[in-house]
Every structure is written in structure tokens, then in C-alpha cells.
Amino acid sequence: MAQVSLKNIKKSYDKTEIIGDLSVEIEDKEFVVLVGPSGCGKSTLLRMIAGLEDITAGKITIGERVVNNMQPKDRNIAMVFQNYALYPHMTVYKNISFGLRAAKLSKADIKKKVNEAAEILELTDLLDRKPAQLSGGQRQRVSMGRAIVRDPQVFLFDEPLSNLDAKLRATMRAEIKKLHQTVKTTIIYVTHDQVEAMTLADRIVILKDGEIQQIGTPMDLYNKPVNKFVASFIGSPEMNFITNADGITLGIRPEDIYLADNAPTLEKTRTIAATLILQEPMGAETLLTADYDGTTITVKAPGTVNLAVGQAIRLLLNVGNGHLFDKEGIRV
């Protein structure tokens, strides 16, 4: 069992507070993604769980043990770094077996474990290569191999995909998900990419300025964002916000806005007149950017659309799927 519990965690450097009183309970075998814009404290939080940074106050428990003052090696965790942290002078085999050699396992045991990990990650043919001879995706897999051979209670991932190109990122995302299903270990995963968060997580923790904004399943966050920050962070393209004279904001996602002439029948709707300022065909859909009384509205229209930029258009908002926020940006 390896639940991870963070209780009233605080972190400050000198007088600058990075994280102020944060608590999260992570279940055994759960895949939790910490997501937020850069500088929100998510990497610091991960590094504190790893033991690479001290905590200023609070209590971190992994499994049954309080690990506050434990060395990283005694916490029974493994970490995958953004830059992979592979040792360039060692072969893939040596890299993967590094931690096992540190644990003074017998040669035969090391070989068995490395081969198993290589099998899972399809690295068997690459074991004699050096990191410089590998592609970005292969390096990423080696660094995951180094983590899984140690059979840790918790995996920590620190933005593992951000050095890869978009296509590879999608592939590796799927591999990480598969990996979680195979090894069934608690995973804490840090990213700034909401797509990664949505696709990978059992639960997402959204952070901003060192504070938790919301914790929930991806669909919770998508359907019931507690504030404007979460609403705009989750979903792509971003949610549209239309504020009325009383300061109440209607948040509505681009996929809930239709061209009025081409809209399905819906229960609660509102029609607005806007001017088209940009048209981006994506193939399966077209992104339209329109100006509505000084507010920029993004619309995700299915298929191909043939309109002229500058043209007046009428948009139908599916208000039934909208979200209302008060002046402070809190959901009402």
C-alpha cells in the first residue's frame, strides 16, 4: 500500500512563500496529475515528495511512514526527470541498472530485472547503446526503465514529455498510461499541459501561486470548474467569458457555441451578433474567432466553414452548458 498524504505543507525560500498550507490525499495506485502554470509550485511540491527539497512546515507520509526527514533513497520512490537525467557515459543497460547496483543486488538479479523492464518498454535491442545514440522517445523510455526496475512504491514524473515533439508526446502519453495499467503503482505526475492532465489522470490537482484551486476527476474539472482560473485552464481552446453589466460572467466553451444558421435544437440558448475576425480550418473542425462588443469569442465549428473575415455572423450559445462566475471569479 502506498498512499501519499501531504498535510499542511508549506515551503518558503527566505521570505518568499512558494507553497502556503497545502493538503492532498493520494490513494494507493492512483494516478494524480499536478497541473498549473509555470511558477505555481508544482515542481517544488514534487521535489519535496522526492526529498530533493526540504519542507518548511507540514507532514509528508508515504505508505505508513512519515518521510519528512528521510533521505530520497529511503523513501522508496522513483523519479523521471524532464531532461531524463540519463548518464551519457553509460550504456542503456548501465543506466537502467544504476539503482540496482546501488542496492548491491547480485549480477543475476540485476540482469533479470533489467531484461524485464526492457521487455515492457521495448528497449531490449537498445541495451548496449549510449543515450546519445537514442531518439528523444527512446531516452524517455530508458529513464522510465530506470524507475521501474527499482519497483518503487511511488513514481514521480516531472514534466517528462515537455522535451518531445507533439506527435511523440501523444505516443508517450499512451505508453505512460499503459505503464500505469501494467505496474499498478501510485503515480504523481507534474505537467503544465492540460491535455496531459486530462488524458492521464485519475484525479487532477490544479495549482496556482502555491495554492490548490481544485481537486477532482478530469470530467469534474471540465464540467464543474470551481472558478474562472480552472475554467480557463482546462479545455482547449480556452473557455469564453462574457461579462454582463452586473459583473456576472458567463463562461461558455467553444464547443458549446454554434453558427446560428447551422445549430441543433437546444433547450436554453441565447443568440448574439458578432463580427468574424479570424478563421482557422483544422480539417475536422474550424476554429472561428469573433468579436462581440469588444469581447473575443472562440467557436469550434464542425467541418469546413466558408465565411469571409469581417462578415457579420450570428452565434447561438448553448447556455444550458454554461458556467456562471461572480465578480471574484467564483462559481455561482
Binding site: 533521505q71 533513497k73 520512490i77 522513483a78 523519479m79 539503482g99 530506470r146
Partner: peptide
């Protein structure tokens, strides 16, 4: 990050010196 990875993997000072720093 080499040293951090090594620390998490449980390497001692000796292993870090001989397998990371010196190479």
C-alpha cells in the same frame, strides 16, 4: 539532475564519485 537522480536511486558517495563525477 544527475546527482538528484542518483540520490533517489540510492547511490552512495562512492558510487556517485566513481560512476558519475569522475567519468
Amino acid at each position: 539532475s544527475y546527482y538528484e537522480a542518483a540520490k533517489i536511486d540510492g547511490a552512495g558517495d562512492r558510487q556517485i564519485l566513481w560512476e558519475i563525477t569522475l567519468p
